[in-house]
């Protein structure tokens, strides 16, 4: 029977044993039997696979939600600025991660997976889902959002805002900060001065062959 130590998590019906896996010896024996036509046992083994129900828990779910306050491996305490984007309830100014090509590439990829369907590839708020009837978000290129601190953007991603759904459970903080960095790059791409660009990038704007290049 389950020792008391276990009962804090397992509300188990007394008398019911829960087996995680069949011992190796039994497995190999069953392997032989299986060929002899005993397949169903092996096809559907008495263990809980991902998303399968389990009678061991009161809510019937085999996949246990982490307990409140659980910190996943490699993550920081849940109230640290890296996890919330806030210090004393105020959004932090600067992205805590070091901005690099790798980070921007990751941010671009995650942006395209999660955000572009609504915000559009360039952030004008004209994504496919908006074209099919979702209320349009504001363009990233309005001055209020250009001025917003990095922590504010982070908070919008993790907690959502208005009709925008929260992504805190779906996107890890590291990726959210990568997305923030990419959104900043998108904003810069629409507001930079041509004079500030490297020579190669100036070309399309200055050359008379601009049309051909684009």
């Amino acid at each position: 029977m389950f020792p008391p130590a276990c009962k804090s998590c397992h509300q188990i019906n007394e008398g019911r044993r829960v087996v995680r896996s069949v011992p190796i010896a039994t497995l190999s024996l069953l392997g032989v039997l299986m060929i002899a036509g005993c397949q169903p046992h092996m096809v559907d083994q008495p263990r809980v696979d991902t998303l399968q129900p389990s009678a061991a828990f009161a809510d019937g779910l085999g996949q246990r939600p982490p307990m409140a306050g659980t910190i996943a491996r490699g993550r920081l305490p849940i109230d640290s600025p890296e996890e919330t984007g806030l210090i004393d309830g105020k959004p932090i100014d600067r992205n805590p991660l070091e901005i690099s090509d790798t980070l921007l590439a990751r941010g671009q990829q995650r942006f395209q997976i999660y955000c572009a369907p609504c915000h559009g590839a360039a952030g004008f708020g004209d994504g496919m889902v908006v074209q099919r009837g979702f209320p349009a978000p504001p363009s990233y290129h309005i001055s209020r959002l250009q001025m917003a601190p990095d922590g504010e953007l982070f908070k919008v991603i993790s907690q959502g805002r208005g009709r925008m759904p929260p992504f805190g459970k779906r996107i890890e903080p590291h990726d959210s900060w990568a997305i923030v960095a990419y959104v900043r790059a998108l904003q810069l791409s629409q507001s930079a001065d041509i004079a500030e660009l490297p020579e190669v990038d100036k070309l399309p704007f200055t050359s008379s062959e601009a049309g051909a290049l684009r």
Partner: peptide, 29 residues
């Protein structure tokens, strides 16, 4: 990966929860 989030990281590809659908279907349809 918008819906099958764990496919790059784990054995299981993940089937999206209703929460994921509602991200859009709170408004669309």
């Amino acid at each position: 990966r918008h819906c099958h989030e764990s496919v790059e990281k784990s054995a299981f590809a993940e089937i999206p929860s209703a929460e994921v659908c509602m991200g859009c279907h709170s408004e669309v349809w």
